[in-house]
Amino acid sequence: MDRSATLRVIDFGTVTPLRSQTLWHAIASGVSAGGPPTLAFCRPGGRYVSIGFHRSIDELDPEMCGPTGLAVFRRMVGGGPVYIDPGQLFFQMVVPADWATARRGETIRRLLEPAVAAFRDVGIPASFDDEIVLGDRKICGHAGGQIGGALVAVGNVIDSFDHAAAASIVRAPAPEARDEYLRQMRRFVAATPTDFDAFVAAATHRYADAFALDPFPGDLDATERRELDRLDRLFVDPEWVGGVEGRRRPWWRVKVTSKVWVTHARIDALRVTAAFREGRVRSVRVCTDDGVSVATRNVEEVMRRFGAPRIGELLEEMAAGAPA
C-alpha cells in the first residue's frame, strides 16, 4: 500500500486520562519518522487538566489541580489550561511537517476545517472564526503545533460541559474573578450533544476527502508503542509537568474564547474585574475589602462612584489585545 496517499484512522475508544494525551504524541513521533498521516480519536475515561506547552503551572488552582486534586498533563502543543472529562471526544490530525504552509494560523485552519464540516454533517451548524464556533459560542477547544517532524492539530467535541468544574481549575486572584470567568464561560462556551460514533465517521470521511487520502483503520506500530511507553513516563515526571516559569503580567487575565477574556487587577483598595469581547467591555465589577460590590456595563458610572479615573485607564489597557 502506498502510504503516502493514505490516511491512517485510529479510534482508541475510551482510554485513561494519561493515554488520552500520550497516544497522539506517540503518533506524532511515528509520523515524524515517516508514518502515514493519521486521524485519531479517543474518549478520556476520567477528569483531568491539560496545560499547554508554554504555560505556567502557577496558572492552576493548587487545591483543585496537582497532587491533591486533578491530575495535570502538559501537552506539546499550544493553548492554556483546559478541563477535560468523559463528556468529550478528542480528535487529532497528525501530518508530516512539510505539509505546513508558511502562515502558521492558516496551517491550523486547514487542519481543522474538515472537523467543522464533520460537525455540520452531524447536524451542528458550526463555523470557523479563529476557532470552531456555533454562532457566537465556542464549541471546540483546539490547539496545534509542530512536534518533531509532524504537524498536529487537536480538538474536542463536547457532548456535555461542566462549566463550574472548568472554572474551578484556574488560580483566580479573587472570588469575583472566578465568578466572572464562570459566567462568561456559561455564555460563550457551549456543549453540543453529539453521537460520537457519528462524528468519528463524518470526520474520517471529511479529512480523507479534504486531503485526497484513502482512509484505512490502523493502530500504533512497534516504534510508536515504544515511544508511548517513554511518553507515559515523561508525562508524569514532575519536572515535565512543572514546565517553565510563566510570563509575568501586570494583571490577571484568563481567556474564555479567542474573542472573550476576563481580567482582574487591584487599584489601591479597589478590586476591578472586567470581561471583554473583542476589546469592548462586557461587564465591570468593582469590589472593596469592606464588602462593597458594584457591577455594571457603564464604565463612567463606576469611575464616578469610586472616584477613580484610573479604572478607565486600566480598562483601556486591559481591553487591548486578547490573551493567548
Binding site: G52, G78, A143
Partner: peptide, 10 residues
Amino acid sequence: SLEAEKYVGP
C-alpha cells in the same frame, strides 16, 4: 519554541 495563535513551533 514560539507560540502564536495556539500553534507551537520550533
